[in-house]
Structures are given as structure tokens and as C-alpha cells.
Design a binder for these strands. Sequence first.
DNA 1: GACCAGGAACCGA
DNA 2: TCGGTTCATGGT
Length: 278
Amino acid sequence: MIYLKQDFDPIHTFECGQCFRWNQSDNGYIGICGGKVCRVSNDTIYCPDSDNEYWTNYFSADTDYSEIKKYLESHDETLKKCIDFGGGIRILHQDIWETIISFIISANNNIPRIKKILETMCREFGDKIDFKYNSKLGIPEGEYYSFPEPERLNSLSIEDLACLRAGYRDKYIMDAAEKVSSGEVNLKDIPEMPTELAKKELLKIKGVGGKVADCILLFSMGRYELFPKDVWIKRILNQVYGVEEKETDSFVTEKYGNYAGFAQQYMYYYYRENDIEK
DNA sequence: GACCAGGAACCGA
DNA sequence: TCGGTTCATGGT
């Protein structure tokens, strides 16, 4: 088990749009990553002790958010209410491969459907996890599926993906599976690269453009200086801050610096849960 | 039935 | 480089 006493609320963290495979159950959120199952309720992460290190990294449990918040609030008065509202957001260190596929699917799509496509993908092509019921963890019995490895997806044909109802994105999924399993895109190298180079590497995959690459780097590798700009964020920057699309990069860099990714998440979550005109 | 969704590929200038 | 079009699918 892990305790996250400060700056953490599972609702904020799991509902802010960075992840798609955490689902609310009657006693908290159940999630699967790296072939491991865990439950999160309030400030506690319920997992086998042998997985503590994995989830500590996943939740970035050693990161001190007070300094981040202080910096952002002092640079942007308007952002204060967003931080007050979603102060329990933690930017996760998700699995790179899963994040690549998730955000390829996110293109021109909506969150409920993204979740549905990913869930079907795991149920159809992932492995059933050998989960031993443990009453202490409070994880309900059930069938849990891992995220399918690149090699597994690469062994399929594009027709096999039709059951996902992912539309035109199925060919992008196949391209990612092929390039990653062949080593043309080496996922082991990318975390070691400088951000610009890492981004360039990800852009080799069809279906990965600038915004999707930013999401992958921010939500799986902690590149907190990135600020993914989707339709919502563009709308917010325009309507709340009066910033035109062309000026966004300089606006963001000047205002949020190396903490831009956090600002983006607080903003995104707040204005999606509340009316944009306030 | 049009419009939208955590966009990107593709094309022509 | 830049702006417009098209791309499946499901929900509203």
C-alpha cells in the first residue's frame, strides 16, 4: 500500500483526461497498468507490497506539488480557481506503449468512446491477468486484462481490429504496432532522449501528430514543459485569456515555463467540469 | 440530420 | 509552411 497524503484526489487524477482505463467501483477506482491491478480510494493506493515501487513511480508519489502550484498561481491569477478545483490532479507516469495507442485513438474522438475502444481492445487482445483475490486490498474478483503488447497487435490483421469500432484509426494502430515491434521506433530509447528528439521519434508513427506526441510525452514520461493543445484548450485560451491560436506557444512558455503541463491539466479539468464563461 | 469529439493525413497552392 | 478537406464512429 502507498499513502498519498498531499495533493492527491483520485477523482481529479483519473477524470482529468490523461488516462482511460481507471474505472470507478463501489469502493474506489480500479485500474490496470503494466499487467498489475490496483485500487485507489481517497489517499490510499491498495496494491501488493511487491508492486509498491511500480505504483510509486506511476503516481509520481515522490513529487512535491506545493512548489508547482505556488509557481503557477504566482504567474497566473486566473489559474488559481482551477487549481483550487482540481488540486488533486497528479500527472501520471503511464506505460508508454499504452499511452501511444490511447492517444492515437483519441484523435477527433470523445472520451467515453476512447475508453470503450481501449476496453474492447484489452478484452479481445490482452492477456487475462492472473489475479489472486486478496481481501485486504479490497479489489473485487473479476476478469482483468492487460494492455496488448505491440507484438500481439502486430500479429493481427487490420480486419481483426474491426471489432473495436475505431474507424480509420485502425490503420494507425497497426502502423504503431509494426514500427514498435520491429524496433524502427524503439520505446526503450525515447525516455532517454531530449524532448524535441523524443517527439521527432514519435512522429514517425502514423496517427501521431504534434498534439498526440505531446500527450504521450507528458502523460507517460513526465515532460512537464509540454502543453498539448486540443480543441478545448484552444477554446479556453481564446475565450478566457484572449489568446489567438498563433500566439499560444509564446503565451504558454512565458507564463508557465517548465510547469506548462500541470497548468494545462488544471485548466482542462476545470473548464470541462464547469462553464467556460467564468 | 447536422454537429461534435483530447487531430492527423493528404492535397494543392 | 499554410489553409482546406476528408477521414469512421457514436452520441446528442
